[in-house]
Design a protein around this nucleic acid. Structure first.
Lengths: 129, 129
DNA sequence: TTGCTTCTACACCAATTTTGTGTAGAATAC
DNA sequence: GTATTCTACACAAAATTGGTGTAGAAGCAA
């Protein structure tokens, strides 16, 4: 299991913004300073904007929408990767599981996922810079 | 983030073996009963064998190598997906990170990963069937 | 021995996801 | 108006995942 590069882009980009402390930074500037593909960065930041973690100003760049303290790692990961679902049941929704142990497995993963998300929630952007 | 289908195959297959309680089951039998691709199942079981979670007997099938109580979810996940590494640093090994917040991020993910693995370690195959 | 079953160790391929590129256009500031 | 930068796509290369196929070896039983 791996955290995707997209999430890493988000963390580095947001970290950069946090350090600018309220001053907007363009995709070009962030890419330059953090050695990231500007093109890919733009895609990732679009998702962060959709999730309202940043605001944008055409002609100026990106800004954090909240204080770094108020942005959790969970917020970031979910913004970039979509709502997390550690275990994807092979079964289609609304059909009864045909497998011998299916549901027990699902419940177990559910518990693990909850704890994992709780850990992500604890970490704030301020802890990463 | 998602658990791969391969892991799901492993869990279902191992669960099936656990229920057979010491009687060997062939890939064909497991595939039939759990509604899984026999071809893919074979690939996954090869990995479980390399990790010594199961033993094989040509002509008969697969057997658990240990008691279900002694096989943890961590064992299974690591056997199938390889040693886990939640965060893959963009940086090449042995080069200093050029990014502004890189190392802090890496350390944080490391801690989260440890807790996650500890959770997986707690769960035994017996808990899944 | 022969025949049957089943695993083994590949190689291969299709589908999907991830990562990255490119561009026309709209918004904003100066 | 001009320069800058985001926006909303579409596109494509690369990597991964999921799945298929096969020749061969190993074990077992008659």
């Amino acid at each position: 299991m791996q955290i995707s590069r997209a999430t890493e882009y988000a963390l580095l980009g947001l970290g950069y913004l946090a350090k600018k402390n309220g001053v907007a930074a363009s995709a070009a500037e962030i890419g330059e300073n953090e050695k990231l593909s500007v093109y890919f960065l733009r895609n990732v930041f679009q998702k962060l904007r959709d999730a309202k973690l940043i605001t944008t100003k055409t002609g100026e760049g990106y800004l954090l929408a909240k204080k770094p303290q108020q942005i959790s790692l969970k917020d970031i990961v979910e913004a970039v990767e979509g709502p997390m679902n550690i275990h994807a049941c092979l079964q289609k929704k609304n059909t009864k599981c045909v497998r011998s142990g299916g549901c027990k497995i699902l419940k177990t993963w559910g518990g693990i996922q909850e704890k994992f998300l709780a850990e992500l929630q604890k970490v704030r952007l301020t802890d990463l810079i």
